[in-house]
Computed example of a mutant assay.
Amino acid sequence: MDIRQLEYFLAIVDSGGFNRAATTLYVSQPSLSQAIRALERDLGSELFHRIGRRAVLTEAGRALIEPARTAVRSLETARASVASVHELRSGRLDVASMPSQAVEPLTTLIRAFSSRYPQVVVAVKAVFTTRDVIEAVRTGTVELGLFAATGGLPEKEVASLSLGRQRFVLLVPPGDPLAARRSVSGEELAGRRLIVGQPGTGMRAYVDALHEQGVDFTVAAEIEHRVALLPLVLAGVGLAVVTESWRGLARQAGASVLDITPETALQVGLVSRRGLLSPAAAAFLDTARTTRPPSS
């Protein structure tokens, strides 16, 4: 077994098949297939069921994913540690982020990090729940994860750095009767049409809690593609409860942003795996410790 075989194995897992993995890796499919067969012989077990052009993981294949990611990530960390002698003049940092926190504070963090290390590529993976962020970091899919949650910071499986709190606000389109207001109570959303996130997200949990408290609203749209949220509000489809990370962007686009009373907020944090980090990940954490979040 060698690291190249594990990298090929993970490429097939992540791309969903041999053809796409070969294209991603810039190798021929026969070479890729030969490397995987050699790995399977070495392990004494098939890793994929070949069904037409599809590659479906066997039980042994699923068991290999996490150890393979750990091994590949450890090698990348070792390589990056050597490269750090050259002051992070190149490299890549993988970060997972929930959608609203990708607006802020991730924008501010990447701007500060890139100004110091302009040759390091920050690759952001979209995830939708706190559990997804922790799992991506824990399994080595990414090195760092940005999340927001109602509870405290996770500490058992990962290391956490607090980045403060984000309160919930209401996005309102121009011309709406609420547009001239500075704040609104949760009860005043009764009878309104709301754009909500998918189950498991903070914004969805907040509006679900309002409904359980007897606030009767209509769900106008349930959306995973957070990039469409602000256009839907501006188009008058409905109002949206989001975190205040959206405040600046929404105002620039022409929406009104109202504080919701009483104040309810999420804890924002940056998580990393325990143990040795790559120089890029360590530098990003240092950047996060010293970078002030944007003012509301």
Rank of each mutant, 00 (worst) to 15 (best):
D286T: 11
T290H: 10
R111S: 15
L285H: 09
A96V: 11
A112K: 04
A149E: 07
F284A: 14
R273L: 09
R273D: 03
E87R: 15
V95S: 04
P279L: 11
L88K: 07
A136Q: 03
A22W: 01
V72F: 09
D208Y: 02
L285F: 11
V72K: 12
A281I: 06
G197V: 03
G140I: 03
E187T: 04
A265C: 08
V133S: 03
V124E: 02
L232H: 04
R131A: 15
E188V: 05
T290I: 07
L230H: 01
G61Y: 02
I110N: 05
V169N: 00
S183T: 04
P99E: 02
L109Y: 02
D286V: 05
L163A: 00
V82T: 10
L109C: 10
R4I: 14
S45W: 03
S295Y: 06
A80S: 15
A235Y: 04
F18M: 14
G191R: 06
A71M: 13
I51K: 12
S114W: 01
M1D: 08
T77R: 12
S15D: 14
A280N: 12
I110K: 07
S256T: 03
D14C: 09
Q252F: 05
P174V: 13
T218W: 07
L249T: 06
A80H: 10
N19I: 09
G91T: 04
S97G: 12
T139A: 09
T290Q: 12
F168H: 08
G164S: 09
L276K: 10
L161H: 01
V127T: 02
V13P: 01
P30H: 07
L285D: 05
E66T: 15
V184A: 06
A123P: 02
R251N: 11
S256W: 01
G140Y: 00
F168W: 02
L171M: 13
H86Y: 15
E157K: 14
R116H: 13
Q119N: 09
E59K: 08
I134P: 00
G52M: 12
T58M: 09
V158G: 01
A35Q: 09
A21W: 14
L249S: 06
S90Y: 01
S256P: 00
F128H: 08
G238Q: 03
R192K: 10
A240M: 02
T58Q: 11
L161Q: 06
D208E: 14
R182K: 14
G200P: 12
R4A: 12
A280V: 10
R53Q: 07
L194N: 00
V242W: 00
